[in-house]
């Protein structure tokens, strides 16, 4: 039996806006098995980050979880009072973001920031916290760790800042790390280093939910992938399976849009149109407006997310029969 680090079922997030309520996350279910890296892929506004924030209990008001449950290592956490949730964050689940600067204190030395996080979550002495900070810095492979402790965030490169954030997230060896586009702002050679580091953490017992718009990043580290579009999961499969045979027309469009490094071409494939406004979603399938295979039924009814075979689920009428 595979133990689940994270299980999300039917998660729905509602935001009231002046022009009506929108649902940036709608009926999202996903699982992160212990010891794995699971990816969520999709374009901006598809609900990736909002899903992550809702799982963490970090939604910005007036956003609200209006339905669904979140289980962390088998324990339901959605109904816990805020005080309990806060205790979970940092202890059993933590999150890193695309831009580490937004979560680091610009006027405090980075070593000190990690030290304080340690002292907040444990009752160890100042000396002990110092020692552990240095250990963590070494573990996340910060070169010349000792001298880096007394740097301010702006004195570090983007890659080093992201390592500091990861050190901070790892203070209590959480069971789950949510990484929201952790390498998007980084150079490719630094990205390769950070991805390697995430794999080390996974091997050391922290499962990872990895959010990315980059299929290359997903292919490199993820075991399972969820494709999101307009707030919903539209496809889910193992990485191998999805890359071999994407079934949803949106997934297929994403894969066709990937640019090759190896060969040039005359014209790049595109997905026509743009991501729909959540206030003006079509009545049927959210992708119907851009879908090259859209039929009459697709315009009227929202398809269910159904398994076409064990471990591969798709939200598309065309794919249901398994036909190409």
């Amino acid at each position: 039996m595979n133990e689940m680090t994270l299980e999300v079922s039917g998660l729905t997030v509602c935001y009231p806006t002046e022009k009506g309520a929108i649902f940036p996350v709608k009926d999202v279910s996903l699982k992160v098995p212990a010891g794995s890296i699971v990816g969520i892929v999709g374009e901006s506004g598809c609900g990736k980050s909002m899903t992550a924030r809702a799982v963490m209990g970090l939604l910005r008001s007036p956003g609200k979880v209006t339905a669904g449950k979140v289980f962390l290592c088998g324990r339901e956490i959605t109904a816990l009072p805020e005080k309990e949730r806060r205790k979970l964050r940092g202890n059993e689940m933590s999150m890193i973001f695309q831009e580490p600067m937004t979560s680091l204190n610009p006027v405090m030395k980075v070593g000190k920031q990690v030290e304080e996080a340690i002292r907040l979550h444990t009752d160890c002495s100042r000396e002990e916290a110092k020692r552990r900070t240095l250990e963590l810095f070494r573990e996340v492979e910060i070169p010349e760790a000792e001298t880096r402790l007394s740097c301010y965030p702006h004195q570090l490169s983007g890659g080093l800042r992201q390592r500091v954030m990861i050190a901070m997230a790892m203070v209590c060896r959480p069971r789950l790390l949510i990484a929201d586009e952790p390498t998007t702002a980084l150079d490719v050679t630094v990205e390769a280093q950070i991805l390697k580091l995430l794999e080390h953490l996974r091997d050391a017992g922290t499962s990872v939910l990895m959010i990315s718009h980059n299929l290359g990043v997903i292919a490199r580290v993820c075991d399972e992938v969820y494709v999101m579009y307009a707030g919903r999961v539209v496809e889910q499969a193992s990485t191998e399976r999805l890359f071999e045979q994407p079934l949803h027309p949106y997934s297929r469009g994403l894969f066709r849009s990937v640019r090759s490094l190896r060969e040039g071409c005359e014209t790049l494939e595109t997905i026509p149109g743009v991501v729909p406004n959540l206030l003006r979603l079509p009545q049927g399938c959210s992708f119907s407006l851009r879908c090259p295979e859209c039929g009459e039924k697709c315009e009227k009814t929202m398809p269910e997310l159904l398994e076409t075979e064990p471990g591969h689920a798709v939200r598309c009428f065309r794919a249901e029969g398994g036909e190409e």
């Binding site: 490719v188 390769a192 991805l195 980059n214 292919a219 894969f255 490094l261």
Partner: peptide
């Protein structure tokens, strides 16, 4: 070499 290629 560092560019992540979409090939699992």
């Amino acid at each position: 070499d560092a560019v992540p290629v979409p090939d699992p």
